[in-house]
Amino acid sequence: MAKPIKTILKWAGSKVRIIEQLRPHLPKSKRLVEPFAGSCAVMMNTDYEQYLIADVNQDLICFYNHIKDNDNGFISTLKQLFIDANNKTVFIKRRNDFNCDLWHSDPFLMLCIAYYRSSLFLYLNRHCYNGLCRYNSKGGFNVPFGRHKKPYFPENEIVAFADKARNADITCLEWQDTLSLVDFNDGVYCDPPYMGSGFTQYHTAGFSDADHEALASALKDINDIQGNPITVSNSPEATELYADLGFTIHEIDAPRTISATGNRKPAKEIIAVLEGVK
Rank of each mutant, 00 (worst) to 15 (best):
G38Y: 13
G262C: 04
F74L: 03
N70R: 05
M43R: 02
D186R: 08
H212M: 07
C40K: 03
V90N: 08
I271C: 07
L60S: 02
L32D: 03
D69E: 14
L111W: 10
D47F: 07
G276V: 00
L173Y: 14
R31W: 05
S118W: 07
S119M: 10
I249H: 13
I270E: 04
A41V: 07
C172F: 03
P24I: 04
G146Q: 08
W103D: 02
L102I: 13
T7K: 03
D163R: 13
I170E: 11
S259P: 07
T204W: 05
S39L: 04
P192Q: 15
S39A: 15
S180M: 13
W103K: 00
R126I: 06
I61P: 02
N223T: 14
Y115Q: 10
S14M: 05
I170M: 13
L124D: 06
T261H: 05
S105R: 09
S14D: 03
P27G: 04
R264C: 01
N86H: 03
Q80I: 01
I222T: 11
D84G: 07
F82N: 09
E237F: 13
F121Y: 15
G276Q: 09
R264Q: 04
V90Y: 11
I92H: 12
G38H: 07
M43H: 02
P229D: 12
T77K: 04
T231V: 04
I67T: 06
A165W: 02
M195S: 12
N99G: 14
G198T: 10
K149H: 06
N234M: 04
S119Y: 04
W11L: 06
